[in-house]
Design a protein around this nucleic acid. Structure first.
Ligand code: ZN
Ligand code: ZN
Ligand code: ZN
Ligand code: ZN
Lengths: 130, 130
DNA sequence: TAAAATTTGTTATAATATAACATTATGTAA
DNA sequence: TTACATAATGTTATATTATAACAAATTTTA
């Protein structure tokens, strides 16, 4: 049962829910929505979320404590994530921009230190809200 | 009493604590440390933190739910924040890099949308931990 | 000095996340 | 196949982070 893809039962249920959602989902929203499928307690949700984040299938929007499915090819197992967040309607889009990714991935600070991962969150108004 | 600077009593107490700290402080760590000064309950801390964030005196490190004093001149009331975060020792430094700020402040996505604010968090190992 | 805006104090509770432990399922290799 | 290791699950309880709601005091503005 677990061989066809690399997700376990709970991971698949939770990924499917996040993946079909048009907006970021919070852990307890997820919990309420999967209780009918037998996932009853917070640790089951958080464990699946942790794994999905680790494998890059989803990302956490840190400023919202919410999760979205990865829609980008350039984030490469979550080493380089960028999002646009609407301050009015809460919409979140993953930004896939090769130049931006390259610029930030190769960024080094004044001491010459390079970083192995970054997360960038842009805030503003989306098209609908402008 | 509130005229000499623009901070109220609780705001000043909490700002002083964060400002002299070498690491990000969490709200309940702050609460514990200011109880001897008469700040006894979470809302008092969170209200001061909200105001300090709004006025740009401190920033929230979203990935850590913790707060640091602003050390940059280029973030201009928190429109453009960037941090380096050590994954080992939890150290956080605010990055002041005019080119980076300019690049991201003028960034527009594929649809031509510009954003009015961003927060960037870099992760890696600091000098001590390498 | 009166009105408005801000800050404070306080209690209770909501929302987010993890610890700890027992059990079951799955992958690997002798 | 059996034995072992690893990963996933189920469950209860609890820790951590954050806000609601309301009353009172302080400060600012006019
Ligand atoms: Zn992605
Ligand atoms: Zn919007
Ligand atoms: Zn700053
Ligand atoms: Zn370090």
């Amino acid at each position: 049962m677990y061989k066809e893809n690399n997700l376990s039962k709970n991971q698949q249920i939770i990924f499917d829910l996040i993946n079909k959602s048009s907006e970021p989902l919070k852990a307890y929203t997820i919990l309420f929505n999967v209780q009918k499928k037998g996932i009853k307690a917070p640790p089951q949700v958080y464990r699946a979320l942790d794994k999905l984040v680790k494998t890059g299938k989803i990302h956490k929007i840190e400023s919202k404590n919410a999760f979205v499915a990865c829609r980008s090819s350039s984030c490469e197992i979550s080493k380089a994530t960028a999002f646009s967040i609407c301050e009015s309607c809460e919409m979140v889009d993953e930004i896939s921009d090769a130049k931006l990714t390259k610029y930030l991935s190769s960024f080094s600070d004044k001491k010459g230190t390079k970083y192995k991962r970054f997360n960038l969150e842009f805030f503003g108004l989306c098209k609908k809200c402008k």
